[in-house]
Design a protein around this nucleic acid. Sequence first.
DNA 1: AAGCTATCCAACCGCCGAAAA
DNA 2: CTTTTCGGCGGTTGGATAGCT
Length: 287
Amino acid sequence: MSSSLTKSASTSSTDEDTELRKGPWTLEEDTLLIHYISSHGEGRWNLLSKRSGLKRTGKSCRLRWLNYLKPDIKRGNLTPHEQLLILDLHSKWGNRWSKIAQHLPGRTDNEIKNYWRTRVQKQARHLKIDSNSAAFQEIIQCFWMPRLLRKIQGSPSSVMLSQNSATTQTLINHSSLLPQVSPNKGHVHTSEKTKSPSIDYLESMSDSHIPQILEYPTSDYNTVVKGCYNVDNIGYDMEAFSLASMVVPSDFEDSMGGSQLAENNGVGSAALVDSLWNIVDESWVVL
DNA sequence: AAGCTATCCAACCGCCGAAAA
DNA sequence: CTTTTCGGCGGTTGGATAGCT
């Protein structure tokens, strides 16, 4: 980036006249672009690049406009609503950023992509899990999304989960009440091309350590998520969350100091949930 | 205070499909 | 029908900055 700027700065004046600029946009360039679009409208980007006087490619102009200058761009941190949507839609569509962005008014695909890479994938890295793995998907669905949901609902009791709180206890579900997604040791590692330490851990677990399944307030979720879609949910079915079983990667223990996780009975699971929430609060969720 | 590291995010790149020539 | 051009998308880079030692 700087090299291209340096290059253009050091070239002769005739070169500067013809050479395309790269790197950060200046205020003057932004103004030029805004004025041109206000009088000619969006689109025909190559023509714009030729006629506007901007020494930028059409692509560059388009990107600058769509990701930064367009008036309805929403700036600032993503709300819990938006985060929840991104997680949910990504679980359905994968890295279809532009498609996901269509459901978040004012947010760009670039912003969502950056969010995913910097926030979500960071968590995966910390947990030493592949962010595309089934295990990580389930962590998102069973821990982080319910947590966001509760933040959206603004319930103090759910925000301030404590080890012995009733709210925490409600998170611990009885698997017989839920659609049975088998405690999926197999599920996890069939999706893994190479086994991670976490998977080794899972495989070594006895049945008594099979992951807890967390209760999910599906109806509440539907209400909240439906409410924040900007379209009529066409093509978006609300079966939403599979109540997949929760896997507890061994690395969670490392990331938390491990003290509370020795036992994996109900109380231990509550502590796990509590600790996970704290991790999410501290490093991930931006209100 | 200085150097190092991690994080964020604006911007670029290559590829692809659709439309135009 | 083939070639060229354009717009759009997802992946990646690297500068700026905050935080840490």
